[in-house]
Design a binder for these strands. Structure first.
Lengths: 159, 159
DNA sequence: GTATCTCGGATATCTGACATCCACGTTATA
DNA sequence: TATAACGTGGATGTCAGATATCCGAGATAC
């Protein structure tokens, strides 16, 4: 099991966009983070379709957050990039083999599926409790308060 | 992100093995659950290497649990099948691009990585709280107490 | 009105999961 | 002792999804 690394890019991009009042193009976001521009564009599209980012076409266009960083959770970003499907998909083993259960006894999810779903819910709850604002603050604290001001300067400059 | 469906098979096989005092061959486990025998054998090998199952070669051989079902957690099985790697791998974005941080400021994990690791720990903790014995009891309750007796009968018979 | 910059969807490549098979060592039974 | 049954490990083929890229549609500034 592996999480798409696009999630990491998307989270960092949301943190960055929280530092800018003007739209930032996909190309500049890619250059700032040192990642492939064409591929990042695909993930930004997903964030846009999920309602996390607002895109403005034309010159001086780009992407911007649709709401304050404190109202965007890490779970929102993960769902947008990785999809809403749970990590575990039940194959309904109990309906197969010589001891297969009749469909009328399989109305609710099987015990294995329920246990995995509970763990999945715990994972999602933890992600829901972290916002882009939290991540921004933590990243700034890690750098002794220089990271975000550096980002703002870079965004203001020519890049 | 997707969890290998071998995890589902492995959990069901552990529940089944908990109902048998004698070793059960991979072929019979596959037939009972209606899944491909050759592929299941691969996963059973992983469970054996992880110390969850004990294998006995030769005729009347097969697999058996190494400890009581109450002492085998769902996390043990997931780790054996899916590997110990966390769901999120940090690409160290902060070391790339024009604002790359020097290595001496990257001694500890970045904020994004920490947030994902926390969620991952919550997921694993939830799985650790569920044992094979719990799953067995739940499956039996779902079937009004007929499922496990049916499994025991099938294992005792020729199959 | 035009040129330019942007997003958006369609397209190609490539890794890893899924699934299978076979030769080998081991063990119980005849 | 010979034989049959079983797990072990490696090699192999197949396929979905992630990775990576390109070009057309649309909007804005000049």
């Amino acid at each position: 099991m592996k999480l798409s690394n696009g999630v990491e890019w998307a989270l960092h991009c949301c943190v960055t966009l929280g530092q800018s009042q003007n739209p930032v193009s996909a190309a500049r976001l890619a250059k700032l983070h040192g990642i492939p521009p064409a591929y990042l564009a695909k993930h930004l599209q997903a964030l846009s379709q999920a309602g996390i980012l607002h895109s403005t076409p034309g010159p001086v266009g780009g992407y911007a957050l649709t709401r304050p960083p404190a109202r965007i959770s890490a779970l929102d970003v993960v769902r947008a990039i990785d999809g809403p499907e749970p990590t575990f998909r039940c194959t309904e083993i109990r309906k197969r083999g010589p001891l297969a259960l009749p469909p009328e006894e399989c109305m609710n999810a099987c015990a294995v599926s329920r246990a995995m779903a509970t763990a999945d819910a715990a994972w999602r709850a933890a992600l829901e409790g972290v916002t882009i604002a939290d991540l921004t603050q933590d990243i700034d604290a890690d750098s002794s308060g220089t990271a975000m001001s550096g980002v703002r300067e870079w965004l203001a400059g020519a890049g």
